[in-house]
Amino acid sequence: MRRSNYDVKGLPGFFGITILCLVILYAPLLVVTVYSLNDSNSITNWEGFSFRWYVDVFSGPESQKFKIAAWNSFTIAIIAATAATTISTLAATAMVRGGKFKLRTVSFGLISLPLMVPEIVLAVATLIFFNSVGFTRGYMTILIAHIAFCIPFAYLPISARMQGIDDSYEQAAQDLYATKRQAFTRILLPMMLPGIISGYLLAFIVSLDDFIITNFVKGAGVETLPTAIFGSVKQGIKPNIMAISTMLLGFSVLLVTISYFVSKTDNKK
């Protein structure tokens, strides 16, 4: 048998399946995007290209509801991502730069707990908690719950980034009489910035996208974009829902892309 050009890695059909995988992943998203540009009152028939459903989202009969929901979603996502990033940055510093300690495994378990508990179970637990301590369900309860499940998403890229930074920079700063606080704020923090941005954006998206936990803890009257969309979808998929979904989808893709390129640039340094 001729062995010189034998390719052990290539397997027939695997390229085809990979393409199939990408088609499966993207086809539904593309279809929704295309149909959001449909100039028709029904979602079934294609009647030409139009932006009317985008106009409808901003000025149609349901626009007021969507505006309030969008405001809630974005303010909650900004505050939750900020809080989660701050808490995670401090925790990552202790975990990565704090030496060996007994509670390390326990701490990591606690930080990743929101990822291990199924989302619906976390939703139930949070609802029961708010109910038994007497918190009225509303904007604040959504915010409190969001910060909690955003923490692991912010923590993972931040701690990964910190592990990639050699501590000799901070050592050098301290040799030159910088205090530990200065070494942290002037040296470590700026070097960690790509990881922090990446963690912030992921936490932001996760908060913006959450439906299940929000649905449990929101209480009557307070809606975020996903719960408002869910409410409308229950009565059938309407074209304006396709338009609002496409906008939200595009926004998530944009943020993930930024996060990807931010974390990519730092690999070259």
Partner: peptide, 17 residues
């Protein structure tokens, strides 16, 4: 790459989480 630069502050840093 883990080190113990901030060993003394460790518990304070972990407290919020």
């Amino acid at each position: 790459a883990a080190t113990d630069t901030y060993k003394e502050a460790r518990n304070w840093l972990l407290l919020p989480s």
